[in-house]
Design a protein around this nucleic acid. Structure first.
Lengths: 216, 216
DNA sequence: ACAAAAAAGGGTATTTTTCCCCTTGTGCTA
DNA sequence: TAGCACAAGGGGAAAAATACCCTTTTTTGT
């Protein structure tokens, strides 16, 4: 950061009240300037594409947004603009999403109930040193490497099947819906019961809800 | 509102970033002053009890908070300080909670993605006219009165059964767990299928999750 | 190119779920 | 006191879900 130059910050958040208020807070710190605000990842990416030369010192990226959410935006940025420094902002401390944001390049992850003092510290730390992790996040990263061996990966077809299993359709109906033999569906089912350590379709539904494969 | 006097606003929200930023936004409007901020309903209520004479023109109350949430706070206020004008703030547009906040006396309900312009309008409308409802909320109130006649009441035993049905237990095991005949359980099941307009146990699980009878 | 692994499908048997129609006892009230 | 609502329990059967063991085809790693 050059002396006598305010750092340039972009806010991407769909909550206008928060977004606009946060701009005031950041400006009140004195050393930073909010140069743009966007309401979702899509318009933010459009801006980046149209202004490839724009100087951006930091992006504050909300995780939960309509149209294009924080994670998808982060994935795009990892591919196309790995130089961007991004701090993810969210209200929830869901381990999975935190890990995903960070493995996709986020330099920090702050909960929205962070105090303005910590927030200021995090902003400056990321701009200067390149990263800022709270204890919460560090703990999760540690926890992650320990449990990484037994991670479960679901294939696309299995995900589609799970979504259908979370309806009142019978397996036969699901098979027809997915243009597969009921026997193949039975195979998916059995394989999933095994992988997820469950015994009934009820267990599958509960798993899907807990892991946000379906929304209720 | 007396001329030449800024209206006195209180913010109750656990997200410090939002809370503090919002204060700046409100002050930037020029006509209002944020006299206090609290991080949950409990400390807000304590303040009210210790300062019964405090002049409060408006309370901005977050719905989702730890310790004492918006709804519980609203219920307390309805009993003890029905004079308070409260606008509920939330990120979610869940019909049930909106209805509950309003029936417990909230004078308005705003989503956090509201624009600052609408927000300003709502604040001033509530202070001056006493209420402000967006189309979203009005629609829900209308929807509510229309569907109120066919509201569903679940008995205690049915609730216990539903909780058990949201596990991998078979009905036989549930019966034994509840010390009832499997046939009685079958009766509960059939009656619930009928009342809730569902056809399978999967539907029952989804209903339970959606209506927060079970937590996942 | 070849072996291994994964996906798709088949057969059959058992258990669970779902449905429909029935009996009994209990308490309430018109 | 007759009538009614309701909780508890039951018989029997059809439909769906689950379990286990199997073959064929496709994909994939090397």
């Amino acid at each position: 950061m050059k002396p006598n130059t305010k750092s340039k910050i972009i806010i991407v958040d769909d909550h206008q009240l928060f977004s606009q208020s946060l701009e005031l807070l950041i400006k009140s710190f004195g050393d930073h300037d909010v140069i743009e605000r966007f309401e979702n990842g899509k318009v933010f990416i459009s801006y980046l594409q149209e202004n490839p030369e724009a100087v951006i010192d930091l992006v504050l990226l909300d995780v939960n947004m309509p149209v294009l959410d924080g994670l998808s935006t982060m994935k795009w940025a990892k591919e196309n603009r790995p130089d961007l420094k991004v701090i993810a902002l969210s209200v929830n401390d869901d381990e999975e999403i935190i890990i995903k944001m960070i493995t996709n390049g986020a330099k920090g992850y702050l909960l929205k109930d962070t105090s303005p003092e910590i927030f200021k510290e995090a902003i400056e730390c990321v701009i200067e040193k390149g990263f800022y992790f709270t204890e919460l996040v560090s703990g999760m990263l540690l926890n992650k490497v320990n449990s990484d061996n037994k991670k479960i990966s679901l294939k696309e077809k299995e995900l589609v099947f799970i979504k259908h299993a979370c309806t009142e359709m019978t397996y036969k109906e699901i098979a027809s819906e997915m243009c597969l033999s009921p026997k193949t569906i039975d195979g998916y089912r059995e394989c999933l019961f095994d992988k997820l350590e469950i015994k009934t379709r009820i267990g599958l539904v509960l798993y899907a809800v807990k892991h946000k494969i379906v929304f209720v």
